[in-house]
Design a protein around this nucleic acid. Structure first.
Length: 270
DNA sequence: CCAGCCCCCTGAGGGC
DNA sequence: TGCCCTCAGGGGGCTG
């Protein structure tokens, strides 16, 4: 499910209900996520006030007075607010109950997500090596060009590498390469600086637009406010293999790159 | 360091 | 309707 726009949509939906609130208790029904939820999460978090809800890459950082809950939604996770006492359905693994009477509920059928505890989240093992945020000036086409020299891998997995830039998953990598007119199969090292400048602009434009629309809902994504996203209406290529290109009418092609499905237009992308 | 591949897990959708 | 196969928005970790 979630790429950067979906995680950011979630953050914006839940933050106003969490910040300033005190946690009354934490209920863990299923501890087996990507890594086990710490046994002492309830003890660590209960009684503390939540200070700030941040996002770094696709991680949500729920900062309490002492310590931070690091959450990742994996492929199928979501976080939303429910009223305390709302019966939990299948796959609704965690409730963080607040004194307001609401609870932050974590749902994740595939359990590829994570809920960890850290005193220093930005230096946590999972976050320390992450590249820059795509919507900041630390990310630009010059960075793509410089890091791509000598890299023989295809450009699509290259821009999905979290050490290069974070938050560009399969949907938005596919869409950005279409918008920039670049064939996703090309070797990263063979692409010019000028084309990388264009690609970086398109990555930023598409991620920003997707956040504006509340993310992309393909099957089941809901933001923290329980609403779906609407960016899927604006997808040009992702999930449209075999259909006609919206720009030139050519048949869109499916190809596998780095173990992930990719779609491109053989006429618009080269 | 890099590229390529495997895996974690459940559910949806298509073919028969 | 049921069964079996393939695939899915992420990303850590292993091998060569």
């Amino acid at each position: 499910m979630p790429e950067l726009p979906e995680v950011e949509t979630t953050r914006r939906g839940i933050a106003p209900h969490l910040e300033g609130q005190r946690v009354s208790r934490v209920i863990v029904r299923e501890r087996r996520l990507r890594w086990p939820i710490p046994e002492d999460l309830d003890v660590r978090l209960s009684g503390q006030r939540i200070v700030l809800v941040e996002r770094r890459a696709k991680y949500l950082l729920i900062n309490a007075e002492v310590g931070t809950l690091i959450s990742h939604l994996g492929m199928s996770g979501n976080l939303r607010l429910v009223e305390i006492g709302m019966p939990a359905a299948k796959h609704e693994h965690v409730d963080i109950e607040l004194e307001s009477g609401l609870a932050l509920r974590y749902t994740d059928p595939r359990r590829f997500g994570a809920m960890l505890w850290s005193q220093d989240p930005h230096n946590h093992q999972l976050l320390i090596r992450l590249g820059p945020e795509p919507l900041t000036d630390l990310f630009d086409g010059d960075r793509l060009f410089e890091l791509s020299r000598g890299r023989s891998m295809a450009v699509k997995p290259f821009i999905m590498d979290n050490a290069v830039v974070v938050g560009v998953g399969n949907i938005y990598a596919t869409e950005a390469l279409f918008a920039a007119g670049i064939d996703p199969r090309r070797e990263a090292k063979g692409i010019s600086r000028g084309r990388y400048l264009k690609l970086a602009v398109e990555i930023k434009r598409i991620l920003a637009a997707a956040i504006e629309r509340g993310g992309t809902t393909l099957r089941d994504f809901i933001g923290g406010d329980g609403q779906p996203g609407y960016f899927q209406q604006e997808l040009f290529v992702y999930g449209r293999g075999g259909e006609a290109c919206k720009v030139c009418g050519s048949e869109l092609r499916n190809v596998m790159l780095g173990q992930r499905a990719s779609v491109f237009c053989p006429k618009c992308q080269s």
